[in-house]
Amino acid sequence: MAQFLAVSNRKGGVGKSTIAVMLAHAAAAWGGRRVLVMDLDTQCNASLMLIGGEGWDKAARAGHTIADYFYDRFDKVAEDESAYVVGNVGDIAHARAAPGRVSLLPGSQRLEDIQGELYLKVSKKDLDADAVSVQVRSRMKRLMKHFGMDFDLVILDCPPGLSFAALAALDLADRVIVPFRPDFVSQFALDRVALMIEKVETGEQLADIPFEQRRYACLANTLRGEGAERMLLDQLALDHPLLDARMPLLDSIARAFDWDETKKNMEEKYADALPHLRALHDEVFGAPALRARTAQA
């Protein structure tokens, strides 16, 4: 069974999709893992980074997106999910014999509508609102879990906000990476997403959970190295586990995600961001929870 790694933050614009794709590339290229990126964000940024606009449009027209998958399979026994997956995506060149590959379950702008339709469909069974929500979420979680049989790692690129899909992904994830930008509102976003991930209601309850037992770790992203950032990180470290790896604000990261079909190696793609990605890869995939899952697999 694959490891499920969610990249999540209720706040938008913190670099979730970028980090999800970077981790996917790193895990495939350096860890030799068969990686599936599941794009749960209706902005579909991870999909656009990995297969470009035309590739995404083709998948959407063929009915091969995450929204189609949820809709088609909601009431059915899971069959061959591979029809929804685009294989060997992205612009990283892998050696022919190497097992590491990145695949994609493309995102869809219709995912929010589909979730509404599924909610209405379940609510016809005379359940109360909470029970309907739980049922929709549970079914989505099971549908996502089916992909665990064919991959070593499933990266769940979560949307901002609290959709059924996002909640199901957080429930399914073995571990959650929470990217954030070091600004005033980010601390509130981290506090809130931490409560959801650890399924507690107050900061006091969260504080009772030792850092090493938490499922999530926070990743400081787009750092400029300013004093105010360092100050904020010190404050956040009182309440949340922060990864030692940090992502600076670099042009090379922005350039790396211009859609380009030309295959390249990791050094060419990530340039001066490479050591930061290496540190992130080593820290995330060296984590005890993931190591334990790897041993079981």
Binding site: G227, D234, Q235, L238
Partner: peptide, 14 residues
């Protein structure tokens, strides 16, 4: 002078 030191919020909390 480093205006970020001491980090007052950290000192008050800890």
């Amino acid at each position: 002078f480093d205006p970020y030191s001491p980090n007052l919020i950290v000192v008050v909390r800890t």
